[in-house]
């Protein structure tokens, strides 16, 4: 009898979860592994780049929300340069980059090394093999230094870059006091206005593509996903970015055009929802967005 009751309660809790458009992150950071510790070293090592001066962490600054606070990266990244996306919680995105054209972390790492960091693989592998620490770690974990092993170690590290324990996650787990009244109002508004139609799931986005500018035109000449597919209906279509830690990742949008969260929220409402928000509504929404900032302990990745 009690079992049935528990099952029923469990079912109710489960459906309550399902009814929410946003899902909580796991409650703790993933533990470090030998591979992730090796990846952490590589992530911070400028020897991976062709110039020998750029590391992954150069743009994905782990002390600055996983991006570089600049509108655009200081290096050439293709015909349509994009604002650096955060590396935090990237493992929960269905696809990566602003066009959503990369399916796996491995693909992303390979493209970033090749295109952005101008890696010269034979040189880099020789450099790494010459370093006794690297050589022994690679031999222990991957049977030697290779391109695939470097990528695998980097991905292992990226998989530990998760920011649990955001106030909003505690709220989702039943702690109503975790949000301020303004943040709670902001969340209700977020759902009612329709923001959560796109910004949903565990990463509050990152799992579908959408046209930027449904009810208006976004400035600039970025063709969007059209650049990848060449299909007219993909013009202006971008991956919906994750809103986790959004308060830390200014400036905003693919071109880093918008400097503050308030302006970004107002612009989104105008272009995507076709409405002009009142100042109080913007403040409520921004307050809610601040509740999506999680914790990340750098020490846990090196432990």
């Amino acid at each position: 009898m009690r079992g049935v009751l528990l099952l029923l309660v469990g079912f109710l809790i489960d459906t309550a979860h399902a009814a929410e458009p946003i899902l909580p992150l796991p409650e703790t950071q993933p533990p470090a592994t030998p591979a992730s510790r090796l990846g952490r070293r590589l992530f911070h090592d400028p020897r991976l780049s062709g110039s020998g001066r750029l590391s992954c962490a150069h743009c994905h600054r782990l002390d600055r929300g996983g991006d570089d606070d600049r509108p655009l990266p200081p290096i050439p990244t293709g015909p349509h340069p994009h604002n650096t996306p955060t590396v935090f919680n990237a493992r929960y995105n269905h696809y990566l980059h602003w066009y959503g054209d990369l399916d796996t972390l491995e693909d992303q790492a390979r493209v970033a090394l090749q295109r952005d960091m101008q890696v010269n693989w034979p040189t880099v592998l020789a450099r790494l093999a010459a370093d006794p620490d690297y050589a022994s770690a690679f031999h222990r974990l991957y049977d030697g230094v290779s391109e695939a092993a470097v990528i695998a170690a980097l991905v292992a590290f990226e998989r530990t870059l998760v920011t649990p324990d955001a106030p909003f996650d505690r709220f989702l787990r039943g702690d109503t006091e975790a949000l301020t009244p303004r943040q709670r109002r902001g969340y209700v508004l977020f759902k009612r206005l329709g923001c959560s139609a796109c910004h949903q799931g565990v990463n509050v986005g990152g799992n579908l593509r959408q046209k930027l500018g449904v009810f208006g035109r976004y400035p600039g000449d970025d063709p969007g996903r059209f650049a990848v597919t060449g299909r007219p209906e993909d013009r202006g279509v971008f991956r919906v970015p994750s809103l986790r830690n959004v308060a830390l990742t200014a400036p905003y949008f693919h071109d880093g055009r918008v400097k503050t969260l308030e302006k970004a929220v107002a612009l989104m409402a105008e272009l995507q929802l076709g409405i002009r928000l009142r100042q109080a509504e913007i403040q409520d929404l921004v307050a809610f967005l601040h509740s999506l900032t999680g914790r990340w302990n750098a020490e846990e990745t090196s432990r």
Binding site: A197, R209, Q210, K211
Partner: peptide, 20 residues
Amino acid sequence: LEAFKSDNALVRNSLAYVVH
């Protein structure tokens, strides 16, 4: 699925707005 997600998001978004 990609087309479905984009359209479904827009339709649900607009529905939420219209109903409200």
